[in-house]
């Protein structure tokens, strides 16, 4: 069977179509899982006897925090693929993932503050997890700021990929240094580690919500990568054909993002 060829979809022109077909499915999965997860979180899960209803924010907070870290790994993975195989689509995926990751990092910091106020009595404590999540947020911002500052897309891709890889090497070092710093300072003695074990329903709700966030992240990244593809390839023939517009007046000029296979669509 000669059927499925993975390399076919490493071309932006073919991937654009594939992503367009996949996006509704991922959004639908995100909506269904999100509805189910929220139902479990707010109606089935029991009230926590220590924290009251305020604990329910962890059903948003924990999935967002998990995905914020996972997306950074995925971003670095795409960046490494791009640097190793010099595939344009990998760099585009890395750029497309960054804003979603930054947004989820922000959501987890924000919901963490909302949870911390009634539970710990403070919007913010210099806990190891909070601090390293904050630094992760800075790493996302640095990646996006670097790409935004470079006009040449090729250089922006590669520079961003390098800083993403440097960041991924540093993330464990940062995490452990912050953790040891925190335990030595004895500043915030409140820790999630001492929380009582979780009821099975709560865990289920959290896992379903995590899946929902995951599906949403994929859908959002695919939507964004479609925009990036169109932007980068705006002068190529397949975009002109697809949009039914006049082809570029000078198709023979060397344009950015040339060399896509027109037959792909």
């Amino acid at each position: 069977m000669s059927g499925f060829n993975l390399y076919k979809y490493s071309s932006p022109a073919t991937f654009y179509v594939l992503a367009g077909r996949l996006i509704p499915w991922f959004y639908a999965a995100a909506a269904l899982l999100g509805a189910a997860g929220l139902y479990v979180s707010f109606f089935l899960a029991p009230t926590d006897f220590q924290q009251g209803e305020a604990y329910r924010i962890i059903f948003i907070h924990v999935p967002a925090a998990w995905m914020s870290m996972f997306i950074y790994l995925a971003m670095a993975g795409w960046a490494a693929l791009g640097l190793a195989f010099n595939t344009r689509l990998s760099f585009m995926m890395a750029s497309a993932l960054a804003p979603t990751g930054a947004m989820l990092t922000f959501v987890s910091l924000w919901t963490g503050a909302l949870w911390g106020k009634p539970t710990w009595g403070a919007w913010w404590v210099w806990d190891a997890r909070l601090t390293s999540e904050l630094i992760l947020f800075f790493l996302y911002l640095g990646f996006m700021a670097l790409q935004a500052a470079i006009d040449d897309p090729r250089r922006a891709d590669r520079a961003g990929a390098l800083i993403a890889l440097v960041g991924v090497v540093n993330v464990p070092i940062i995490y452990f240094s912050v953790k040891w710093w925190n335990t030595l300072h004895q500043g915030a003695s409140v820790s999630l580690n001492t929380a009582p074990s979780m009821a099975a329903v709560m865990l289920a709700g959290m896992l379903v919500m995590a899946l929902a966030v995951w599906m949403y992240a994929i859908a959002a990244a695919l939507s964004r990568v479609r925009c990036i593809i169109l932007e980068r390839e705006r002068n190529s023939q397949w975009v002109a054909q697809m949009l039914g517009a006049e082809p570029h007046p000078h198709p023979n000029l060397p344009l950015e993002g040339e060399g896509t296979n027109v037959e792909g669509i």
Partner: peptide
């Protein structure tokens, strides 16, 4: 090296480098 010749390179380098300096500062 990454910000060579970029506009606003000085501010940008701080955004890139300061988070990576955290472990050195802590220890």
């Amino acid at each position: 090296a990454l910000t060579l010749g970029l506009r606003g390179g000085g501010v940008l380098v701080s955004l890139l480098v300061l988070p990576l300096y955290v472990p050195v500062l802590i220890f």
